[in-house]
Amino acid sequence: MSLVILSAALWAAQTAVAVAMCLCAWRMARGPRAQDRVLALDAMYVCAMLQLLAFGVRTGNTLYFEAALVIGVLGFIATVTLAKFLMRGEVIE
């Protein structure tokens, strides 16, 4: 019984996050400006973290959470660097 409820909820949650990732990808392709694309990339990183979290719950394995943390660190650094690049036009100054 509980497994049925859980897998239905996980199906709904993972679909919602996947659609959210598609919307972010659309915004990233569409632009119109560079800051919109970076913002969409940042949102996509967050969605990827949440997708991995849902995967962890589905498999009952907490190893996925470490992967989600690594994605979070990479996404954070990437967005900060890109924002700095947008502001100054160069990363290494």
Binding site: A16, V19, A20, L23, C24, R27, L39, A40, A43, C47
Partner: peptide, 9 residues
Amino acid sequence: TLIGALGLA
């Protein structure tokens, strides 16, 4: 999350 992405789009 989906509503946020919808807003982004």
